Computed example of a mutant assay.
Amino acid sequence: LQVPQAEVPESTLVMQVYDFNRFAKHDIIGEVRLPLASLSLQHVIEQWSDLVVASKVEEEQLGEICFSLRYVPSTGKLMVLILEAKKLKRMDSHGLSDPFVKVHLILNRKKWKKKTTSVKKNTLSPYFNEAFVFEVPFSQIQNVDLVISIWDHDKVTKNEPIGKLFLGCRATGNQLRHWSDMLANPRRPLTQWHVLQPPEVVDKALGLKSHLKLPLTSR
């Protein structure tokens, strides 16, 4: 982690321990909070700390999504089965949403391929059961990121993102584990629930290269 020197006195390192659950949200066991101002950062620190009850202050809950991954190295086929979502954030004035899912493949930090599910009307717990197949040669599988996002469809205004996550060798935590399990078990579909993250957080982590559109000049 890189923390600017000016931000160290006001920053706190938070380490949380979870009980892993493949088919539901992970349960938090406890946490340790270390104000950086109280630490001597010039040296490596090794110490035991007692876990305490996690802070009740949580980020806004955007929802969870369940999907299955399957990769066949011999044919280069990556299969993504979008199953369902639950506890989605309310986006419409009537307290519901019209969710649909976008599945992007990113190659070398540039958007490469995209698939989209159908729209499910007036629900916070949509069931999709829609499968997509991407052609990804085995030589490229280490260089791709799989980005899954849920959007609220709006006929009048612009569609709004509800939440997002990405998997691949650059991912972390639950997403990296799911991706690694898929690569370690070729041809076997692996299903898992994931917690949605704020879109801007995922976009920053991906560090996507922008596609510049040059203005046309008239002669």
Rank of each mutant, 00 (worst) to 15 (best):
V53F: 08
P99Q: 03
G76D: 07
P126R: 01
R33E: 14
K120P: 00
A6C: 10
E10F: 15
V44F: 04
G63V: 04
L88S: 00
V133M: 08
Q61D: 15
L105N: 01
L107H: 14
F67Q: 04
Q16T: 15
A37N: 12
A131C: 07
S11D: 08
V101R: 03
V80G: 02
N129D: 15
Q42M: 00
E31R: 07
L81A: 06
S49N: 14
L83C: 11
H104P: 01
L124E: 01
K25P: 01
C66E: 15
V32R: 05
I141G: 04
T12D: 07
P9H: 14
P99G: 03
L69F: 06
E58M: 05
V14F: 10
V101C: 13
E46Q: 15
Q2I: 06
Y127W: 10
Y127H: 12
V80M: 04
L62I: 05
V53Q: 11
L88M: 00
S55R: 09
E84H: 11
M91W: 00
R109G: 09
W112Y: 11
S139W: 07
E7S: 13
S68A: 13
E64Q: 08
E130M: 08
I28G: 04
L62V: 01
L83S: 09
L36A: 13
T116M: 14
I106G: 00
L51A: 12
F20Y: 12
R33V: 01
V52W: 01
R109D: 12
L96D: 03
V52T: 14
G30C: 05
I29D: 04
V119Q: 06
E60Q: 12
M91F: 00
M79R: 13
A54E: 07
L13K: 05
R70W: 02
Q2C: 09
K111I: 06
Y71I: 06
W112I: 02
A131M: 08
V44S: 12
T75M: 06
E135G: 08
S93A: 15
T116W: 03
V14N: 15
P99E: 02
K115E: 11
K114Q: 12
A37R: 14
K77M: 07
K114H: 07
V32Q: 06
S40A: 12
V133A: 09
V3T: 12
V32G: 03
L51D: 10
P137F: 11
E10P: 04
L81V: 10
L39A: 07
Q42V: 06
S55Y: 03
K120G: 02
Y127M: 14
I65N: 04
F134V: 05
T12N: 11
I29A: 11
R33P: 00
S139D: 09
A6K: 14
L96I: 00
F128C: 02
T116S: 11
V80T: 13
L51C: 15
Y127I: 15
A54L: 02
D50N: 13
A37V: 11
V72Q: 12
R33T: 08
Y71F: 15
K77T: 09
Q42W: 06
F134D: 02
V136D: 00
Q61H: 09
L69A: 04
Q61P: 03
R22T: 06
F67I: 05
T12C: 04
S125G: 12
H94Q: 13
T116R: 14
L124G: 01
E135T: 10
Y71G: 01
M91T: 01
F134A: 04
P126W: 00
Q5G: 13
E135Y: 06
E7K: 13
F132G: 01
Q61V: 09
P126G: 02
Q140T: 11
E58N: 13
